[in-house]
Amino acid sequence: MKIKFLGLVLLFVITSCASKKEILYLQDATENNSSEITYQTATIQPNDILKITVESLVPEAAIPYNRGGNSDVQVNSLELIKLQGYLVTNEGTINFPILGQITVSNLTALEIEEKIKKLLIDGGHLNNPTLEVRLVNAKITVLGEVNAPGTYNFTEQNITLLQALGYAGDLTINGKRDDIIMTRDVDGVRKITHIDLTSTAFMDSEYYFIKPNDVIIVNPNNPRVKNAGFVNNVGTILTIASLVLSSIILLTR
C-alpha cells in the first residue's frame, strides 16, 4: 500500500512540473538567428489623443493653429499635453482650429501631417508650414500569468511584443509561452491571434511589433491549471505526502 501511495505522489509531482520545452523562449534561435526587420507604422484610431504642432516662417502666423496659444511654450507634463491634445472621436475626426472637422482615422501620423499641411496651403492660411503629429496616449494592456499585469503607456513609435511583456515584468513560470493571445482592433474589426514565443516564427509576422491598444493575454500552462484549487508547490506536496505516509505507518503497526 505504501509503495502504491508513493508511486501516486511521484506521478502527481512529475505531471505537475513544466518541461524545459514549455518554458524556454525562441528555442529555434540557433537555426533562425538572422532576419530582416520590417517596421510598422500604426494608424490612428478612435479615442487616440494627438499632439499637433504647426510652425511657420512667421511664428506669429502659426499661433491660431496651435492649441494652447504660442507653440514656443514648452510643456513638460505628459498629462497636460494630453489635455491640450486632439481627441479622435468615434467617427474618426478631430476639431482643428480654423479648419474645423478633419477625418484622421486609419491614417498614419505622417499622412495626417501631409493632409493638414495641404489644407493650410490650399486654403491660403499659411505658406509652407511645418507640422508635427504625435500620438501621446499609446498604451497596451497585459493580463494573465505575468509578474505585473496592467496597462502601460509608451512613447516609442515601435515596441516589440517581447518589450511589452518586459513592461509587465515577464511571464511567470506558470505562463503558457506557446499560446499567447493578442487582440487587436484594425479598421473597426477586432482580430484575435495566437502567438508561440517558443519559436522565432512570430518575429517575421505582423504581430512582432505592438500597436496601440493591443491586449496581450497570457494563460496558465497545463501544470498550473492542474494545480489550480489544490496545491501548487512541490514542497507542499512532499510535506503532505510525508504526513500521510507517517500516519499510514503508525496505523498499520
Score class of each variant (00 low, 15 high):
residue 139 K to Y: 07
residue 139 K to E: 15
residue 139 K to L: 06
residue 139 K to I: 05
residue 141 T to Y: 08
residue 141 T to Q: 14
residue 142 V to E: 08
residue 142 V to Y: 10
residue 142 V to T: 09
residue 142 V to S: 06
residue 144 G to R: 01
residue 144 G to C: 05
residue 144 G to D: 07
residue 145 E to R: 05
residue 145 E to M: 12
residue 146 V to M: 00
residue 147 N to H: 12
residue 147 N to D: 07
residue 148 A to D: 09
residue 148 A to K: 14
residue 148 A to P: 05
residue 148 A to E: 09
residue 149 P to F: 00
residue 149 P to N: 08
residue 151 T to V: 02
residue 153 N to W: 02
residue 153 N to D: 13
residue 153 N to R: 08
residue 154 F to K: 08
residue 155 T to K: 13
residue 155 T to Q: 14
residue 155 T to Y: 12
residue 156 E to S: 14
residue 157 Q to R: 11
residue 158 N to I: 01
residue 158 N to Y: 07
residue 159 I to N: 03
residue 160 T to E: 03
residue 160 T to S: 14
residue 160 T to M: 06
residue 162 L to E: 11
residue 162 L to M: 15
residue 162 L to Q: 11
residue 164 A to C: 04
residue 165 L to H: 05
residue 167 Y to K: 12
residue 167 Y to S: 01
residue 168 A to G: 08
residue 169 G to H: 04
residue 169 G to F: 01
residue 170 D to V: 00
residue 171 L to P: 04
residue 171 L to V: 11
residue 173 I to K: 03
residue 173 I to E: 11
residue 174 N to H: 10
residue 175 G to Q: 01
residue 175 G to I: 00
residue 175 G to P: 05
residue 175 G to W: 00
residue 176 K to G: 11
residue 176 K to P: 03
residue 176 K to R: 14
residue 178 D to M: 01
residue 178 D to F: 02
residue 179 D to Q: 13
residue 181 I to D: 12
residue 181 I to L: 13
residue 182 M to C: 11
residue 183 T to Y: 15
residue 183 T to V: 10
